[in-house]
Design a protein around this nucleic acid. Sequence first.
DNA 1: CACAATTCAGAATGCGCTTTCAGGGCTAGG
DNA 2: CCTAGCCCTGAAAGCGCATTCTGAATTGTG
Lengths: 336, 336
Amino acid sequence: MATIKDVAKLAGVGVGTVSRVLSGKGAVSARATDKVRSAIAELDFRPSHIGRALSARSLGTIGVFVPDFGGAYYGPILRVLDTELRKVDRHMVAVNGCGHGGPHEEALEGVDFLIQRQCDGILVFSHEISDAELGEFKRRQPNLAVVNREVPLLEEGCFFMDHRGGGRLAARALLEHGHRKLAVIAGPDRATDNRERLEGFYAELAEQGIARESVLHVTGDFSMPSGWQCAQQLLAMDKPFTGLFAANDEMALAAISCLQGVGLQVPGDISVVGYDDIDMAAYASPRLSTIHAPLPELVQGSLNWLLNRCYGMNLPVERSFELSLRMRDSVARLPC
Amino acid sequence: MATIKDVAKLAGVGVGTVSRVLSGKGAVSARATDKVRSAIAELDFRPSHIGRALSARSLGTIGVFVPDFGGAYYGPILRVLDTELRKVDRHMVAVNGCGHGGPHEEALEGVDFLIQRQCDGILVFSHEISDAELGEFKRRQPNLAVVNREVPLLEEGCFFMDHRGGGRLAARALLEHGHRKLAVIAGPDRATDNRERLEGFYAELAEQGIARESVLHVTGDFSMPSGWQCAQQLLAMDKPFTGLFAANDEMALAAISCLQGVGLQVPGDISVVGYDDIDMAAYASPRLSTIHAPLPELVQGSLNWLLNRCYGMNLPVERSFELSLRMRDSVARLPC
DNA sequence: CACAATTCAGAATGCGCTTTCAGGGCTAGG
DNA sequence: CCTAGCCCTGAAAGCGCATTCTGAATTGTG
């Protein structure tokens, strides 16, 4: 690979001049510019990103930690991130939890890896890392944002939405269609977003006169296999229910598959409400009614905040996000 | 951030010594080692990845281009890549097609970006880039692998599987259950993997006495929305069919959603076979019968080849991959 | 025509690390 | 006691670029 020195030598100028025509900053005469340009073309010279990084003390990368690349949830997030970052000539280094140990160690390792690799800023999607650990990461890398989670220590650096309200919406969707015998497939307890949406769900239920104890409750881990298993557990309880709320769409979809597999109709026998509104919810069988979470907007907001911080940009940063019900075909009125 | 110089000064040694204790290469006395270690601890020193990269002339990154992070197809691929790369202390820079222009320009831009950023090697998932363009990329970055596509120019650098055989499997799955009136939802024509699986499908049909002209054929783009639309087009043709082959699972799933939406039963009225066996196929309603493509293994093979090339490693590189039928619940015997 | 004000270019420096080099101190063998 | 050989070490060079600095060339002004 040709270096800036080779170009300078071939063009018969100094490296400073080459650097100046490259960056466009500083005055260079037309003659020198021409010579440099043709030397660049002749050598097929491309400035070394590493050299630039060393000089600028920045690689132009934003690190992103997500628990798992598989699954339908994080794909659209990565898409937003990559698209926006490349617009501003930066790029994303995305890692997911992997390696040894449980999800907690994996998350710690993942974020640590990103800090080591000197990302200019870091975006974290995780409920495995404790507030204190997050604080420690923040000390090492102040340009840190946490998405979809509220942590007081981080102040401005966290972006979240009103999952309690979302949970209420889900409850209302079921209630308004006459369902009173309900079941819930919850996400992992340590996930604050899961806890909040369940709080909202149960709060709404209580206000409408349905006791928490009367609803069947099983806990999954947001994955499809666990959604399937949860549905089986629910069935095994042998107490009839007509409305099911799953804490995310993937579990909802898998539960529906399980339910239909044993001959139950959705929404004929059981109405199902999901959460998140992942892309495929609209293309499931039946089309899934769910709470739409404006995740791309949330991501955009946190990314913009981070970019402003890292590079002194002045992007708009939105902090309020509306959840809404997307009523499709998996919820039906309970026949009286 | 403390630098190696600061450490050297505090420990009262030269930077060379510090570097030596850091890398473990070269002899250092116990006393010097101790002094350096405590200086490192005191300063909370972490070696700069950029400095290392400049010296080593390598950032330790493998670039990955995929057309789109959304969708269910690429998530598991990224997971394998990230996991394996971090095992060997490297990392992934993944980009997806984005920006202006059509998918062709986006792909070109994406790969170009990865080359500019000086990835040590590049993995390309794309059917948009022509063989010649790929050749040109290979000239600029010889450590280039193309996955799921056969391009003669690249010789060893491409990894693919027998999609013709896969297509035959799909045909047999339908044929063996008595289906003779068939429909196909194809993927984009420029995708060679799509063409191959259709060739196999139609070849098998021909051998079993079914003329190509007799099967309903519509073309999508591998996405769920297009699968839905294709199903509608099929319905609009108003010619009955009992077996449907979709060139990938996402279109199959969306088509099922559409079909069930208008009151058709799957597999009661129409049997559906997908292709790829994405994770969610086993959790759809009904559970989708599909051709299992060993994508993680394919990715692992190409990655190992690339790592061997980039870093002189000696990882095993598998080149032959078996497609197989995963018979689940979306295919049923045609009632006589 | 002399001198000041610009414009431009090449040399030099610095970024953080690895690696090479040369030399100092020590041990062991003759 | 001398020297060969080894171990250890700090200094220095180099990686590719941006940027600053200094001096030279050019232009403009009185």
